[in-house]
């Protein structure tokens, strides 16, 4: 029972971990990450396309990551090159991706709800230990936050990301190209979040309409609740996933209606924002388009 609960927590957490890692990276560079939902959905759809046409989940993974990077690039060009409002650009991209995936779902599979079954990782619906830990995306998902922590805290790129996110003017005087670092961070964040979508599609062996179902926003909540650091954001992802897994386990017992469990991440984020349990202070240059 406990093992099952922990295993389920891990499986639910994987897409959050990928998306939140993308969110931490982009926001630390100063670009708002309301786009995670769109990036994830792109990843899920492109992964399904790749796996369907090439018959290999690895090709799906490749296409999914590429798709996320493309939309990351669109967001980057709009907000960095053209200085478009980051929130508006994100709203547009999320809306566009829902429309595009539905449009091409009809075009490619003549369906308004889901794709046919495609090759994926692990046995679908199989929550066993072996199936979980032979899924390469689960292993990658466990590693992504520690790896990001290392990149942000220990590498030159990470130092520069922090610099352009906190004090872009100072970074410029040190000869760092603020724009280039931000392009790198946002495009990578698209690819990382898309991995979360790839996991969803390849784990379920198909794409279903709007299958990310707000997970990008839960990931964003985890980023904020984790105060923009990879390790704490990762713990927040696990916490949110645990609440969900617990809810699935006690479903039907009527302890707490599922709707209230689904509110937990959002309520905790509001509480964190309001500073009730220590203030959540965002990167100083977050949301500001810098010249």
């Amino acid at each position: 029972m406990l093992l099952l609960l922990l295993l389920q927590t891990l499986r639910i957490a994987i897409p959050y971990l990928f998306a939140a890692s993308g969110g931490v990276l982009a926001e630390r560079a100063g670009i708002v990450s309301l786009t995670l939902e769109g990036f994830m959905l792109t990843g899920a759809f492109c992964a399904t396309l790749g796996s369907f046409y090439f018959g290999s989940p690895w090709m799906g993974l490749l296409l999914g990551v590429a798709g996320g990077a493309v939309f990351g690039a669109i967001h980057a060009v709009a907000t960095i090159r053209f200085k478009a409002d980051q929130i508006v650009s994100a709203v547009a991209i999320n809306l566009m991706v829902v429309g595009l995936t539905r449009f091409f779902l009809r075009l490619a599979f003549d369906s308004s709800s889901n794709s046919p079954r495609v090759a994926g990782f692990g046995g679908d619906g199989n929550a066993g230990v072996l199936a979980t830990f032979t899924n390469p995306l689960v292993l990658l998902g466990i590693l992504v936050m520690p790896a990001l922590a290392w990149v942000i805290d220990r590498t030159r790129f990470g130092l520069r990301v922090r610099a352009v996110g906190e004090k872009p003017e100072a970074a410029t005087t040190l000869g760092i190209s603020v724009d280039r670092i931000r392009y790198g961070a946002v495009i990578t964040s698209g690819a990382l979040a898309a991995l979360g979508g790839c996991y969803l599609a390849l784990d379920q062996h198909q794409f279903t309409d709007q299958m990310t179902a707000g997970r990008g926003f839960i990931a964003l909540a985890a980023v904020i609740f984790g105060r923009w650091t990879p390790v704490r954001a990762g713990i927040a992802c696990l916490l949110f996933a645990f609440a969900e897994a617990l809810q699935i386990q006690v479903q039907g017992t009527g302890v707490l209606p599922s709707q209230f469990v689904s509110m937990i991440p959002y309520v905790l984020t509001l509480v964190a924002l309001a500073g009730v349990v220590g203030r959540a202070v965002p990167p100083a240059a977050l949301g500001r388009a810098e010249g």
Binding site: K83, A84, A92, R102, F103
Partner: peptide, 23 residues
Amino acid sequence: VPKQMVEVLEGIVILAVAVSVPE
């Protein structure tokens, strides 16, 4: 044509306005 085309167009209009206003 699938009606979802207009969702794409809505997104494109928003993005294009957001990009071209400052430009």
